[in-house]
Amino acid sequence: MNDLKKLIRDIPDFPKKGIIFKDITPLLQNPKGLRGAVESISDYYKDKKVDIVVGAEARGFILAPTVAFNLGAGFTPIRKPGKLPYEKISMSYALEYGTDMLEIHKDGIAKGQQVLLVDDLLATGGTMAACCKLVESLGGNIVGCAFLIELTFLNGKKALDNYDIFSVIRY
Score class of each variant (00 low, 15 high):
residue 141 N to K: 14
residue 162 N to Q: 15
residue 128 M to H: 05
residue 74 G to D: 04
residue 15 P to W: 09
residue 108 G to L: 02
residue 91 M to P: 07
residue 41 I to L: 11
residue 21 F to D: 08
residue 60 G to M: 04
residue 93 Y to H: 07
residue 41 I to W: 03
residue 121 L to S: 03
residue 6 K to D: 15
residue 14 F to A: 11
residue 95 L to Q: 10
residue 171 Y to Q: 13
residue 67 V to H: 04
residue 20 I to K: 11
residue 15 P to A: 10
residue 6 K to G: 13
residue 41 I to Y: 07
residue 87 E to P: 12
residue 168 V to Y: 06
residue 60 G to W: 07
residue 94 A to L: 14
residue 69 F to W: 13
residue 28 L to W: 13
residue 170 R to N: 15
residue 116 L to Q: 06
residue 3 D to K: 15
residue 148 L to G: 00
residue 83 K to L: 12
residue 157 K to M: 10
residue 145 C to Y: 00
residue 116 L to D: 00
residue 83 K to I: 06
residue 100 D to M: 01
residue 120 D to H: 05
residue 99 T to Q: 14
residue 22 K to S: 05
residue 96 E to S: 11
residue 91 M to A: 12
residue 105 H to A: 08
residue 6 K to E: 15
residue 106 K to P: 00
residue 110 A to Q: 15
residue 169 I to P: 03
residue 145 C to K: 05
residue 129 A to W: 02
residue 49 K to Y: 06
residue 128 M to P: 00
residue 131 C to L: 13
residue 59 R to C: 08
residue 131 C to N: 12
residue 14 F to C: 10
residue 167 S to F: 06
residue 34 L to C: 11
residue 128 M to I: 06
residue 151 L to E: 01
residue 93 Y to S: 11
residue 112 G to T: 08
residue 76 T to W: 00
residue 53 V to P: 09
residue 136 E to H: 09
residue 126 G to I: 02
residue 6 K to F: 06
residue 21 F to N: 08
residue 94 A to S: 15
residue 138 L to K: 02
residue 50 V to D: 02
residue 1 M to F: 14
residue 17 K to C: 02
residue 99 T to K: 15
residue 156 G to W: 09
residue 74 G to E: 04
residue 135 V to K: 04
residue 50 V to C: 04
residue 128 M to L: 15
residue 97 Y to I: 12
residue 63 L to A: 02
residue 90 S to R: 13
residue 90 S to Q: 10
residue 166 F to A: 05
residue 32 K to D: 15
residue 89 I to Q: 01
residue 35 R to M: 11
residue 48 K to P: 01
residue 168 V to R: 01
residue 100 D to R: 06
residue 138 L to Q: 04
residue 130 A to G: 09
residue 39 E to L: 14
residue 101 M to K: 15
residue 8 I to T: 04
residue 19 I to R: 08
residue 54 V to Y: 00
residue 18 G to P: 11
residue 90 S to P: 05
residue 38 V to S: 07
residue 69 F to E: 08
residue 135 V to M: 04
residue 124 T to P: 01
residue 91 M to D: 09
residue 76 T to Y: 03
residue 169 I to R: 00
residue 84 L to A: 08
residue 132 C to T: 12
residue 74 G to H: 07
residue 46 K to N: 10
residue 135 V to G: 00
residue 142 I to Y: 03
residue 155 N to L: 11
residue 162 N to M: 11
residue 162 N to G: 12
residue 19 I to K: 12
residue 162 N to H: 13
